[in-house]
Design a binder for these strands. Sequence first.
RNA 1: GGGCCUGUAGCUCAAUGGUUAGAGCAGAGCGCUCAUAACGCUUUGGUUGGGGGUUCGAGUCCCUCCGGGCCUACCA
Length: 573
Amino acid sequence: MARHLITSAIPYINGIKHLGNLVGSQLPADLYARYQRGRGNEVLFLCATDEHGTPAELAAAKAGKPVADYCAEMHEVQARIAQGFRLSFDHFGRSSSPQNHRLTQHFAGRLAEAGLIREVTEKQMYSRADGRFLPDRYIEGTCPNCGFESARGDQCDNCTKQLDPVDLINPRSTISGSTDLEQRETKHLYLRQSTMRQQLQDWIDSKTDWPILTTSIARKWLNDGDGLQDRGITRDLDWGIPVRKGDQDWPGMEGKVFYVWFDAPIEYIACGAEWAEANGLDAPAWERWWRTDKGASDVTYTQFMGKDNVPFHTLSFPATILGSGEPWKLVDYIKSFNYLNYDGGQFSTSRGRGVFMDQALDILPADYWRWWLLSHAPESSDAEFTWENFQASVNKDLADVLGNFVSRITKFCRAKFGEAVPEGGAWGEQETALIETLTARIRTYEALMDAMEVRKSAQELRAIWVLGNEYLQSAAPWVTIKEDPERAAMQTRLGLNLIRLYAVLSAPFIPDASAAMLAALHSDDAAWPEGDLGAWLGALPADHTFTVPEVLFGKITDEQREDWQTRFAGIRT
RNA sequence: GGGCCUGUAGCUCAAUGGUUAGAGCAGAGCGCUCAUAACGCUUUGGUUGGGGGUUCGAGUCCCUCCGGGCCUACCA
């Protein structure tokens, strides 16, 4: 039995995520986790909220709440929505957990001992009115190059020139609007990634099967300009993990916290510890997933993320792990995704454009979204959500091809034989051929799922559904029942068993519908069809009862589509 | 500016340098009547963004031009 450690990029605590965020990490990670569990493998699937950093502090202030309270509340909100989408995390942790505090400080201490940390005194903009240092993005002013009045401290959106905040004319804080800014000296810790460049390069070069998107971003950072740069890993903020060297104070760093991008990936590991604690397990229980010296050497670790997260997962986090000199589990495969656009533009959290996770669940069940998003996952390039495409795909694939198949066979059986699997008859050539075709397609489906080819897997699964309709059409039990009732019984029995097959194969994509199908068949056996498919398709025996299910997938009407199109075009209310 | 990705049928996407560039949807025709006006079969549709080159052979590799997107290190 293989062991799979799976993590999804951890969503930022600041607000509810949109469908683009969902399809870029959590949803494909869940697909893979469910599939691996379905195949009987041992899985630990971890996710968490990423809670530190300036935006969290500002969002809390805006909500008029202490930042710790705000994060606790938003964590619950995100956890509930994740549950709504049936994201099957073994644990949904928090980067603000005590476990992550300890582990982050531990890593910093190890890196310091290894000589991989240097202290840098630098000047940074401080806003007296806001009482805080301002990241460059939070300073606006007039661009010295083009005169654009809303140029940001790091870059001018108008002329795209890179800027330094001190170059801005009339600089002001975007938080308060205050112009009472000054440069202050402050001391920070830098991770000396540059000294590890060759080691990281060799490691990346060894990953020949990774998505181009993943390796090309990593190479760009390794080789651009002077090569990989050292990275600041501390910030002057109140909310975060206090800078400590293991369990020791760090002289000169009092009142400072680690940078969110330093502690966020470490939360993947800490989340394992949180999972163990939440389930009453001891340290060895999570260490056997994360420490190659404590049982994790046979673990395959796969990370899922959007392309914006790639540099941190291919470089900074591996640098942290390698630099520690300790045998922590390194990632084996990074599956990265492009962006999903919304109706001709970008999803925008700040402008409330597009569909957000809570709204999506308000209007349709999770399976509709899961199916569309996964079957259109932005793997090779950015993808686009349009309501027309969504309506057409979901109606055709889920309602017509799969839902109607379940409906026609169960209703036929009820009408002719009653609500129990009919007895009699034996398979003929048609059935043997069907099973042969199905077996080949299932093996292809498995290979695609193993390779995390999300779109192609969905395509293959759909083709497997279609085989059921083709079989029914050519077998035509509504005809054979007139001259050969035993044959019709056999055909119907196979049809009912196909529903069970579809329930099991489809569970990673559409878990609720899958459960509804199994429930209708009064079956709780969801074992994957390994080995002889013919035998597997005889699992529902004669006389086994079932219930004709409710409509599995209702169709999206034109009125609904138009209504939603209007509703989600503008500003989120 | 630099780097990377991308452009294939009306739409969404496939195609380790190797038969005649394939699927699904939409369109057209036929069949079926168990079923959610559903299903099945057949079928129309392409100068692979433009131009040049390498090669026995190019959607694929190289050059160039045009269009779309992302990243560019203190947002996360």
